[in-house]
Design a binder for these strands. Structure first.
Lengths: 110, 110
DNA sequence: TCAATATATCGTAATAATACGATTAACAGA
DNA sequence: TCTGTTAATCGTATTATTACGATATATTGA
């Protein structure tokens, strides 16, 4: 790791950003997952409709069932949401713990 | 807009998420921009090296000058950073106002 | 003005993301 | 067990992202 070499004329650092490896990858993944309008809409819907099933989202979004399912997988893998099987359906909720972690990390960083 | 139809057995909404149109697009853009390892590294570098120039980042990152410049453009367009011309060089800093806005929005949402 | 430095932009190849229809799997109720 | 419902996954076409070398632009100092 290189030493810092900030001349006195440069602005002060506004914050620290000590995150690396696994954690950083997880954080980048979460950013990436929400960097898509459809997935952001899904998150919005889940806020107001916690526990809704995939088909609710398929009705809500202007996209095919396969596409919505794929977006849900991305959000699941990134840790934004959690799905529980209920009979033939899957009920989705926000993953509160991971969301809290994300908020916390963003707060630490910026 | 459809009426909510949350049965009493479903979990309560953990939060509100009232963001639309222009603001939402801006927020999604910011998420998307940081959803890339190289750009996240650039942000980390800028935290500890505020005011550094493009070439500093080119030396730091394992990528070609053109690639780094492209990543900087994405971060600029998304509003994460701001660049000021200093002679033949460009000095970069975090865009504190926009970052504060992002933090605030994420806080509102989750 | 000329050479050196610093960056942005252009054109393009390789890779990844996105969306869809079709198929498969898993469950519920008749 | 058969049928309908719900979702995930597969294969694939289209589009977007990423990275690079080459080139263009802009400034500084000799």
């Amino acid at each position: 790791m290189k030493e810092l070499d900030i001349t006195p004329t440069l602005p002060e650092a506004c914050c620290t950003l000590d995150i690396t490896g696994q954690e950083q990858q997880q954080l980048v993944n979460m950013f990436k997952a929400l960097g898509n309008p459809s997935r952001f809409e899904i998150m919005k819907y889940l806020v107001t409709h916690p526990g809704c099933i995939t088909d609710d989202l398929v009705q809500f979004l202007p996209q095919a069932q396969a596409t919505v399912s794929q977006h849900l997988k991305v959000l699941r893998d990134a840790g934004w949401i959690v799905g529980t099987t209920k009979g033939p359906a899957t009920s989705y909720c926000l993953h509160d713990d991971n969301i809290a972690w994300f908020r916390e990390k963003v707060g630490d960083i910026f």
